[in-house]
Write a protein that binds this DNA or RNA. Sequence first.
DNA 1: TTTTAAACTAATGTCGAAATTTTAATACCT
DNA 2: AGGTATTAAAATTTCGACATTAGTTTAAAA
Lengths: 218, 218
Amino acid sequence: MPQENSAAKVLHHLKQDILKGVFAAGHKLKMSALKERYKVGVNPLREALSQLVVMQLVQVQDQRGYRVCPVTQSELVDIYDTRARIESLCVGLAIVRGDDAWEAGIVAAAYQLQANADLLKADGDIQAWEQLHQQFHYSIVQGCGSKELLRVRLDLYEKASRYRNLWLQHNAGHGAFDVNQMEHEQLVKATLARDAELAKKLISQHIQVPSQVLRDLL
Amino acid sequence: MPQENSAAKVLHHLKQDILKGVFAAGHKLKMSALKERYKVGVNPLREALSQLVVMQLVQVQDQRGYRVCPVTQSELVDIYDTRARIESLCVGLAIVRGDDAWEAGIVAAAYQLQANADLLKADGDIQAWEQLHQQFHYSIVQGCGSKELLRVRLDLYEKASRYRNLWLQHNAGHGAFDVNQMEHEQLVKATLARDAELAKKLISQHIQVPSQVLRDLL
DNA sequence: TTTTAAACTAATGTCGAAATTTTAATACCT
DNA sequence: AGGTATTAAAATTTCGACATTAGTTTAAAA
């Protein structure tokens, strides 16, 4: 098993902590506090923070350390709008390029998501549901076959995570999940029917849902 | 004047050196050599390298240091294909959203590029020409108004730079510049006429040109 | 009371060196 | 000879300490 270095480990944990909201937007990331929390020295920490700066999750001020990037309404709208366009691009390409295995993967992921939806909803295990949800959407876009496009998509997904977690938190218990499930069925139907125009329209709307809700909240 | 730290300075220089081909694809980046070249300690170096890893210009192998990412034909094709699609997206949005100032900016940048093209071609100052070329295309896509989309575009542009420099090197002195100039005129015409479909088609083809040539070279 | 300056505290950024791991070179055995 | 174990050299990664800079409190002067 490849033993990754301290910087890689702290990067993973720190990133999750920021995305999950453990460190709120604008929070000052003091070296002493982070050293304490992750049990590492300053140098691995600085490496991890440097990487988070490139990912635009952390800001750096010269000689004044690091802080979590602020969240703004305009960035929220921009990210979700751009995500919708990129995901549309992926879906359109996947419909053109996807083969039998791709179709089978979609059906499998859709089944998994639906089968576990009620269970997880009852448990309140939103993270597990989000995992299946992500897997479902990935099974579709994966058919586009472009590593670069999929990476752009992933970057935007992660950048949206902080906002999405606010939404999940706000919408826990609401009927949004059932609407969500219906949208998924329509999307699968349009995708397998290779109806690119409809599928692109559906995925675009589906992605924008949290944005609509959160817009008034920020 | 904000004095940036060592890591930021070395990041800039090292990145340029990789993009310009000073360090070839696959080249091992030894700490001792980099320390010597950039006159800094190992820690700022590791911070810069960490950031280049996120930008996918450098690979890291645990306990085995860093090396410049390899270049492959499949990545070349993927990057240029994805760039064409993203740039199309930007152009389409800019045509819908662009205002008078946007139009004026395009005309100005196009004039600058054309006015200096012959001069720079004679001098062989390709870097200066590339600067104006980049400015010209940015003046168009800038009208899309989406920071996220423009950032994705910039990331892909930089990732393509290593391949583009191979192309510029290979095509110095050829008649490609004149063809290029004609494509620009058509693009400006279609864009200012707000003909989205034509402009998107033109920019997509324009971007793919180096890819076509390089495909056989790698 | 307000303003300015100075001293003190705390945090960041950098270097040199130690500890760990990989790479190579050499010797050894079948 | 071929392959394996041993040893030495080189490179990466991490820590501790120091210099530098920012932020805060205290004190003095207007």
